[in-house]
């Protein structure tokens, strides 16, 4: 079983976690590639992939969190989220990245790059209805 010592950790980021793509294919989380997300969004009804560029990384007022500022999608909308520093994001062409690759490695055993301003992350949103 996955480690349970850190109850709040989402176990889908644990190295070895099995992920089902929208095509039905199963992959380990550490083996996912940009194309897997793109293809999954294509075959998912109602979801679309957005490019979310990290424009600022700040300390969060919430202790133990960091505040990430993104500009999202074609509209370049500003979105701010508070996450734990070990939370991985999938960066286009680079793979899993977090504000603290050391913590991600320690808590999830998931190899990560350092998330930096300018990185373009994969996010999803609802496809607009035409």
């Amino acid at each position: 079983a996955f480690a349970h010592s850190q109850g709040h950790l989402p176990s889908h980021f644990m190295k070895g976690a099995i992920i089902q793509l929208a095509t039905g294919e199963l992959k380990r989380v550490e083996d996912l590639q940009t194309q897997d997300f793109v293809r999954s969004a294509e075959v998912s009804g109602g979801l679309k992939i957005d490019s979310s560029t990290v424009v600022d990384i700040q300390e969060s007022p919430w202790q133990g969190f960091v505040m990430l500022h993104f500009v999202v999608g074609e509209q370049q909308s500003k979105v701010t989220i508070d996450v734990r520093p070990e939370h991985p994001f999938f960066v286009y062409g680079q793979g899993w990245s977090s504000c603290s690759p050391e913590r991600t490695a320690r808590l999830f055993s998931l190899p990560c790059h350092k998330l930096q301003v300018g990185d373009v992350c994969i996010s999803i949103s609802l496809q607009s209805l035409n």
């Binding site: 079983a1 996955f2 989402p10 176990s11 889908h12 980021f13 976690a17 099995i18 992920i19 089902q20 793509l21 929208a22 199963l26 989380v29 996912l32 897997d36 997300f37 999954s40 998912s44 979801l47 957005d50 979310s52 993104f70 999202v72 999608g73 509209q75 909308s77 500003k78 979105v79 989220i81 994001f89 999938f90 992350c121 994969i122 996010s123 999803i124 949103s125 609802l126």
Partner: peptide, 25 residues
């Protein structure tokens, strides 16, 4: 000896943030 264990399968979209842009004023 490897003990059998249940394996969870997670959907791909649980891995990426849902960033819904707020509506412009």
């Amino acid at each position: 000896n490897v003990e059998p264990r249940s394996v969870a399968v997670f959907p791909w979209h649980s891995l990426v943030p849902f960033l819904a842009p707020s509506q412009p004023d």
